[in-house]
């Protein structure tokens, strides 16, 4: 039983955490792709930017969360979401839109987004330094230990993890309702289906583009902040996020928001399972195993230093066997 709780804490919880983060990032990537038709490589840095803005606001008002009983960083989220969205729209207007209007190939926009990546990274590190900082300024992270009857080891959940799960579920439901029920959400899907016809129908495509950046920027802020809350804010956060969120978006089928959610959890769990040390689970069986089988101490598929290999191989496997993604994306 202890082993199962261990498995729950280190795989189910950890996998759901990474899965939620990747899912929210991948939704942004896939939405931007379906509306603007290019792979937005600066997306992971937008997540860092969102978290960084939360960090700034938390440093400025360290006690704002106390009256609400929430971490200050969570209270600052809406403001940071607005600021990140503004930044995203601004970046689009200044850098991407002129290129789009010039009719460049999508790959040029990809390179432009690499340029934006460098600018954001440079700016964030210029102000934050390169070290890690906790988003819990003047406060302590709450940790919940749920005792399971008959077992010594408790289930461990932290406050940011619970907030993360609630926020992820809420944003996925909200996004679903927005895309299927609201006029603008439908227009967004229409534009991703057929941009020329959307224009010919009188849909204000500029508005849709702006909206896309706002949604992507907001989700990026949520994901980046909640990840930083769970561990710590690091300026090179984006470095570890870029490949997984793109793998998630492609696995889910590019242009397919709910595929991106599924892809995010798939990549998140695959990573967690790959670095999990399986010999822990087999330990209770050790005494009953025949003596010629020697159980190694380390039965992890890959070491944590090679975690990046997991999303990469998922990506490669999908590109080889099913380039449209598991849920049949629109565009390959």
């Amino acid at each position: 039983m202890n082993e199962l709780i261990y498995f729950f804490n280190y795989v189910v919880v950890a996998g759901s955490v990474t899965g939620s983060i990747y899912a929210m990032g991948a939704i942004g990537v896939t939405l931007i792709y379906s509306i603007l038709r290019f792979a937005h490589f600066a997306h992971a840095d937008m997540m860092t930017l969102g978290a960084f803005l939360v960090l700034l606001l938390t440093l400025l008002f360290p006690h704002a969360g106390e009256p609400l009983g929430l971490p200050t960083a969570v209270v600052m989220l809406p403001i940071a979401m607005v600021l990140t969205s503004l930044a995203a729209v601004g970046i689009d207007r200044v850098f991407y839109q002129p290129l789009r209007n010039h009719g460049v190939k999508p790959i040029v926009l990809v390179i432009a987004s690499l340029g934006v990546t460098l600018m954001l990274q440079g700016l964030i590190r210029l102000f934050s330094g390169t070290g890690a900082q906790s988003l819990y300024v003047d406060a302590r992270k709450e940790i919940f230990r749920l005792e399971v009857p008959g077992v010594t080891r408790p289930i461990i959940l932290t406050e940011p993890q619970i907030i993360l799960f609630v926020v992820t579920i809420a944003s996925v439901i909200a996004l679903h309702l927005f895309l299927t029920r609201s006029r603008l959400g439908k227009a967004m899907r229409a534009m991703s289906d057929n941009p020329d016809l959307a224009r010919a129908s009188g849909i204000n495509t500029q508005l849709i583009v702006t909206l896309t950046w706002v949604i992507a920027g907001s989700l990026a802020t949520l994901a980046g902040t909640l990840l930083s809350l769970d561990v710590a804010f690091k300026p090179d956060l984006s470095f570890f996020l870029l490949l997984p969120i793109f793998a998630a978006a492609i696995v889910g089928g590019v242009g397919h928001p709910f595929g991106a959610v599924a892809g995010g959890f798939l990549v998140g769990f695959a990573e967690t399972l790959a670095v999990f040390n399986w010999s822990v689970l087999l330990r209770p069986l050790r005494d009953s195993l025949p003596s010629w089988i020697e159980l190694p101490n380390n039965l992890a598929l890959v070491g944590t230093e090679y975690k990046i290999v997991v999303p990469f191989f998922i990506l490669i496997a999908v590109l080889i066997w099913r380039p449209t993604g598991l849920f049949k994306g629109k565009v390959i």
Binding site: L99, I111, G115
Partner: peptide, 28 residues
């Protein structure tokens, strides 16, 4: 401010990014 050298590096990161965008825009 922390390590000045690393900050200098970050400024260069920013400039390189900006340079890429400027060239794409004005001298593609």
């Amino acid at each position: 401010p922390g390590n000045m050298d690393s900050q200098a590096l970050q400024a260069r990161v920013f400039v390189i990014g900006l340079l890429i965008l400027m060239v794409l825009r004005f001298a593609p």
